[in-house]
Design a protein around this nucleic acid. Structure first.
Lengths: 173, 173
DNA sequence: GGCGACCGCTTCCGTTCTGCAAGCGGTTGT
DNA sequence: ACAACCGCTTGCAGAACGGAAGCGGTCGCC
């Protein structure tokens, strides 16, 4: 089992825990999309994760203490996945990844809106977001500010604008 | 060539460019260790990267525009690898990875010193560091502040302290 | 000018990881 | 009872990884 660590460097250790092509995608979907079940993570995945890879990542993230799982009272065989505190503290990292990606990668305009908003909001917004996640995932009290709401509003507005635009484009074809 | 993009999400695109187990290690070593040649990246690698993997990563990072390569005037067959601007802008991301790793992973005390300093310095220190990197890699003017110097001083102090400690431990064995 | 050390980088090969499709046994709603 | 759905597994092919040896070229040195 190649579980031994390559070095004690914090950057390296972070890479070893979440530095693969899927772990942060799963965490992103739970975090920003509030997808809590296996099936929603699988089917609503923008990047089309394979079911075996998803199962494997959930297992690893549970083992690493980044996620927790409890059974869903409404369905005997479902589990509800929640972010643990270490995963919630990935918010600044994900925000930086979003900022970098929208500058240096061919990101889609609509999907950039949230990244841009999170960048403009800065650390204060990240902290509010983390508080909200603690409410949703760790039974902390509901904070006043809803960053998820702000992100959703901005995203919906951008999606509507894009649809209007593509309607117009379709009409002129 | 599995080069097609999975989605236009900025986080996903960042992952696709540098979200593997080695790319950011290579960039980290060039950035913090100022290792500019193939051999130094290979032999001084804390994590013992294999030469074929290193060659592959350098090729990819060059193709992605994160690194540049020029030939070394002192040795006909050597190349000097430099960070391009997009790689320099990974500083905040690497800083966040360091911060997360030292909190949530079993990071070595000595190697944590730099991550902690970079965290305490905050965005102002990151900006100074990026300016210094632009001087070292992009022929920008030398800035007043040397973050690399600060990091080295702190690291050396920690290493000395650790050595003293292990000497003492050895003596009492 | 010959020789050993070193240079960037490649090749080989066994192991592991990924991506895709199908499917399993159990649960739920009708 | 039955179909739809649930979390998750299996099988398999191709890609990526990791370790070791090695290739042709270059350098410093006597």
């Amino acid at each position: 089992m190649g579980e031994r660590r390559r070095s004690g460097c914090p950057i390296n250790l972070t890479l070893e825990m979440v530095g693969d092509r899927w772990s942060l995608i799963v965490i992103r979907d739970i975090m920003f999309g509030n997808r809590r079940h296996f099936r929603t993570l699988l089917n609503q995945s923008e990047e089309r994760i394979a079911s075996n890879v998803l199962a494997d990542r959930l297992r690893r993230l549970l083992a690493a203490g980044l996620l927790t799982r409890r059974s869903d009272p409404t369905h005997r065989q479902k589990g509800i996945y929640s972010l643990a505190e270490p995963a919630i503290q990935l918010v600044p990292l994900l925000a930086q990844m979003g900022s970098w990606g929208l500058r240096h990668a061919p990101a889609s305009e609509t999907l950039c809106v949230r990244a841009r908003l999170l960048e403009e909001g800065g650390p204060a917004m990240w902290r509010a977001f983390m508080d909200e996640l603690r409410h949703l995932h760790l039974d902390a009290p509901r904070p006043r500010r809803s960053v998820i709401g702000e992100l959703k509003t901005a995203f919906d507005a951008a999606a509507t604008a894009r649809d209007r635009h593509s309607d117009r484009a379709a009409r002129t074809e």
